[in-house]
Design a protein around this nucleic acid. Sequence first.
RNA 1: GGCGCCGUAGCCAAGUGGUAAGGCAGCGGAUUGCAAAUCCGUUAUUCCCCGGUUCGAAUCCGGGCGGCGCCUCCA
Length: 494
Amino acid sequence: MPIRVYNTLTQTKEPLQTVVPGKVGMYVCGPTVYSKSHIGHMVGPVIFDTIKRFLVHSGYDVTWVVNITDVDDKLIVQANAEGTTVKELAERVTADYQACLDALGVTGIDHMPRATEHIEEIIGITQGLIDKGYAYPAGGDVYFDVSKAAEYGKLSHRNPEELQAGARIEPTEKKKHPGDFALWKASKPGEPAWESPWGPGRPGWHIECSAMSMKLLGEHFDIHGGGLDLVFPHHENEVVQSECYSGKPFASYWLHNGLLTNKGRKISKSDPDTVVLMADLLHQYEPDTLRTLLLSSHYRRPIDFSPGRLDEVERGLRAFRSLFDRFERMTGRSFYDLDAPTSRAEGDRLAAGELPPEVADHRARFLEAMDDDFNTGGALGELFELVRALNRFADAERLDARKGDPAAIAPWVAGMTILRELSRLLGLFLRPPARSEPDAGGLTGPLIELLIELRAQARKDRNFALADQIRDRLAGLGIRLEDRPDGTGWKIEG
RNA sequence: GGCGCCGUAGCCAAGUGGUAAGGCAGCGGAUUGCAAAUCCGUUAUUCCCCGGUUCGAAUCCGGGCGGCGCCUCCA
């Protein structure tokens, strides 16, 4: 079953056929770095990180580029308001963005080019478009002439006449047509500026993505991604200027992720009520919880964000944590350190061996879902089924009592290895949750062990009132006790 | 006004022509001293509404209704 992707350009699902067999070039629009990242900024990175993981696992050699737009009117305004420089602001916000990506396990980005480091390429493309008659200089600015490009509107499926009729585009006397957009903007005194054939200025908004994607991935590459809100005008402009410049098709497939809403409205910097900062969320929730929410439905669908939803997701993830604890008790090894197949072929070999019932089926269905336009919601469902199949097998075979017998638990461990393979494809459970670890070198662990010992004695004496008091008081402190045949375990909960 | 997305149980959600995955919440059972965790069972005769095509539709077509996004900076 080949991988199929929904292409905004054709509005259909198409089999993935790459420019160079076995290789994928993927470009995703990153942030304009003038304010801290909110949860909405993470949707694209998490989705495309997952897509990259899946493509790599499927045998592709993937190069993934996410740009940083570090020069723009908004940066100038914000830097002035803060009394700092555009450069300092951009660096600070970029560092915050990077920290959020790291926290969510978005590790697959190969290049993060900055607009300000590609001024030369931007000027080159702009000049090239002027030379070919697609752009014109006007009073220090340079505009793309939309009327010269017959295909303008093909990505967002609009026609330019209607566009102009209903347009609320700011009238600028320098533009020939209201739909024309700036490739280069003349700078005012005191603003960041670069020398150019048209005088000192800075790039327009869309040109940097054309310059950086074509430089790093070639003039024709495979996947271009971004939020649905970027389809028009950003991506429409990007595709038209790139193709007019190179004379080649730009990106083969355009993938757009749905937007996050809060209280029913799109989360957006221009609607401050809706903004939920990543930095705050990361203090309240496990990264896996945030990531699971973002992957819980198909990537084109909008997701309504709320703390209640996150709590639900977190409760759902407990089943995984409990299973991982079981694995650790059984094998003495952490699930988080478990090596798993890193390719589909390797996983297929493991799946062909001895496994608990249903495990191979769920794996097959998981991969099928991912093949079909990266259906992470369906894949996640299979992961939950896998957890159940593994617990069921361990229960039925009474594996907890046979943990000293490697041969007996081997099929189950193989099943766990499949779970590791698949959950890693979604970028989940890469690291143990921070909160379940007692303070390193602190007294918490030993003190809890002491209380468990005292409670065990009370239970032996059939003093259940005291035993339950210990358990309830610990629960009040967020520490949950679990009595199992082989002893009492404990867990710190949120 | 134009372009696009969406409407599946109390909530979230997969499924896009063959008789409704999964998660949360709830209920019943196994297990337990009681719990927790785990397992089993259960919760939509039905997929916004109305018509049509078909042996057969949540899935295709037509028409409504409702929600959202874009057309201006946005991931």
